[in-house]
Design a protein around this nucleic acid. Structure first.
Lengths: 193, 193
DNA sequence: ATCGTTTCTTAACTTAAGTGAACGTTGTAA
DNA sequence: TTACAACGTTCACTTAAGTTAAGAAACGAT
């Protein structure tokens, strides 16, 4: 399991045995059951998550409706807004599947950055990369219709369509579950003829 | 003009005179005329931008149509996706107004990070913060109707509605210019009664 | 000052998403 | 096993956005 992490990190920087041991020794690998809630609206937390195995999602409850806005799967990570801003969370985080997560917080990070400046470089590069990717995703969302967004997801993250319930996918696509149903039927119809 | 920058930075870290001089001495402040193009589709570039004064925008040309997806105003910065990924750019960047920008690139940054590790910390914190903010914005976009998005923009960035042409605002809101016109008329109508 | 372009608005029509309700299926818990 | 809740689909209806076209206003360049 740790090897997955080190393989991932090795794309960015090369770690010495010392540095690898340092990561392992802080012992921040945690298992969660499907459905477990990691963060609730209104709650303050310092925990960031990196998915080694499984899938987690962020969602809001607006007018009593659940709105899922993001999914994180293997080798994807999330530092909640409330951690960055020291404010109560606006959204929930929960596990869609049994998951193994790396759980960190600013204190752990500060310590390790002090001992291993290389870790801070890594985090800078990672978050710059994530930011650029998030901006491209946002751009694509803005410039696409719901149908295009669905087809695009089918291309770029086909696994999600299998792992995730339709009504969560719908809000992820910015539409209602009924519209997603209809849209899928429409596409089927087109492909038939 | 530099004071604006140092005021901004001082919210995150405190700089010594030495460090301030280092920033000034690299001389990366640049002036641009309204309409100037900073980056074109297909082009490779290493330049990132930080707006000291003025306004820049990113836009795509899709099916011959200009789609504006982001605006950056005073004390906001952008490292284009193509810089992070070393790929040709998918979008254009141009100046909406006469602007004064801080222009940087990975080489300058690497040098300064070496001399002043504090700068790398600053950049890590800034990009983590920007990422969290971008995610919240994206979430809000997904969970809102075009009309809500317009009203929200009216609240959160009223200056943009003054500075920016309607048709650019429209694509920023994910709709057509005609729809924005109609939507505004609809809101006016509501407020009258 | 004029010409031409760009920008914004309006309108009529088309298309698709939102809404509310019904129904069958699946999954869960007593 | 039954009962209930959650999920996905379908339908009829409403509302709003996309499309195409036209015209008025603002802006720039000559």
């Amino acid at each position: 399991m740790q090897d997955l992490l080190f393989d991932f990190i090795s794309k960015y920087v090369s770690l010495t045995e010392d540095e690898k041991n340092a990561i392992v020794s802080v012992d921040i690998f945690r298992s969660f059951k499907k459905g477990a809630t990691l963060l609730r609206e209104g709650q303050k937390s310092n925990d960031g998550y990196f998915v080694l195995k499984g899938c987690i999602r962020t969602y809001y409850i607006l007018d009593g409706e659940e709105k899922t806005t993001a999914f994180y799967t293997e080798m994807e990570g999330l530092t909640p807004h409330c951690v960055i801003n020291k404010t109560p969370s606006e959204y929930y985080i929960s596990c869609l599947e049994d998951s193994i997560l790396l759980v960190s917080n600013p204190e752990i990070e500060a310590e390790s950055f002090e001992k291993f400046p290389k870790f801070e470089s890594l985090c800078r590069v990672l978050s710059e990369e994530l930011l650029a990717k998030e901006q491209i995703n946002f751009d694509k969302f803005k410039t696409s219709s719901p149908e295009q967004r669905y087809l695009n997801l089918l291309q770029s993250r086909p696994d999600l369509l299998q792992r995730v319930p339709q009504h969560q996918l719908a809000s992820y696509l910015g539409i209602k579950p009924q519209s997603l149903s209809r849209l899928r039927a429409r596409i089927m119809e087109k492909n038939k003829s």
